[in-house]
């Protein structure tokens, strides 16, 4: 729109800037808090300019952890989170790719029934099935383990559905050309389907990595050993009752650290992510 109405423009910009501030300010405060000592944060008013404790706070958090509440080093927690997020993202992609491939390209009894079964689980997020899932995982002795953290979250109706929709857009003639070329189902899968799904896989990876990284309720339930804490749980566990007891500077440093990997994934894979959502290469 080519319009020049200064007043309106001023209001537009003001609204947008207010929005940016509302989102960015808490982040800024978090960062500032992570650069001060506990005493200076607790003083009133709280400082709004960076302090001199940045290095001290971050190195303590990464290597030693808080002295109260959860006392595991955040470095280890971040490793746990990374393992969990990667396992969930990659596991979901792998499982969904294969199940969507089966649903689209193979004729087997009750094919539609199975598809709808998968589809119906969309209505059952982790929170709904959490008690039976917990029971199963605990009976299998998978509490406090990476398998227990990731396995129940890997099955994904959303990703299966997404890949199914994508496969349906691959022209039948391509399948037939491959058949005449002599490619069996597995060859077709590896040589044609997987390369064509690359952008969808990238988009899904971004979404699922963040989903895995931000898991809260599930790790909270099944991890009791500090060594298995993910960083999101770590933050929660560092906050002990009463403001004065919590080392807020360290909590904020941990929060900042927890932000970095998902942000990196989004920034680095942005190009692929947008491509995967917008473009289909056929």
């Amino acid at each position: 729109m080519v319009e020049n109405r200064p007043v309106l423009r001023f209001i537009h910009h003001l609204t947008l800037i207010a929005g940016v501030v509302a989102v960015a300010f808490p982040l800024y405060v978090t960062f500032i808090a992570s650069t001060h000592s506990l005493e200076s944060i607790l003083s009133v008013p709280m400082p709004l300019l960076p302090g001199d404790q940045l290095w001290a706070n971050y190195s303590q958090v990464l290597t030693a952890g808080s002295t109260r509440g959860a006392q595991a080093p955040v470095g280890a927690m971040m490793w746990n989170s990374l393992v969990m997020a990667l396992a969930i993202a990659l596991g979901k992609i792998a499982i969904s790719l294969i199940s969507a491939f089966a649903i689209i390209y193979f004729r087997f009894p009750l094919r539609n029934f199975f598809f709808w079964m998968i589809f119906v689980t969309l209505m059952l997020p982790v929170e709904v099935r959490i008690i039976p899932t917990f029971k199963v995982v605990s009976d299998l002795g998978m509490l406090d383990s990476y398998v227990g953290l990731t396995l129940p979250l890997i099955a994904s109706a959303t990703a299966t559905f997404l890949f199914r929709q994508f496969f349906m857009t691959i022209p039948d003639e391509l399948v037939e050309a491959a058949r005449i070329d002599g490619a069996g189902p597995l060859r077709f899968f590896w040589d044609v389907v997987v390369p064509l799904s690359k952008t969808s896989m990238a988009a899904l990876f971004v979404i699922q990595f963040i989903y895995g990284w931000n898991q809260y309720l599930w790790p909270l339930l099944i991890t009791t050993d500090e060594k298995m804490y993910t960083v999101v749980i770590g933050i929660k566990r560092m906050i002990v009752g009463g403001d004065a007891l919590t080392e807020w500077n360290l909590v904020m440093a941990t929060a900042m650290l927890a932000l970095i990997p998902p942000a990196l994934v989004v920034i680095l894979m942005q190009k692929w992510f947008v491509k995967g959502l917008v473009e289909t290469e056929k």
Binding site: E173, L174, E176, V192, P195, L196, E281
Partner: peptide
């Protein structure tokens, strides 16, 4: 694949990648 034939399709059906 074992019929020793080759087929040309209307929409070309080339492998895009």
């Amino acid at each position: 694949k074992d019929r020793n034939i080759a087929m040309v399709f209307q929409n070309y059906a080339l492998y895009p990648h």
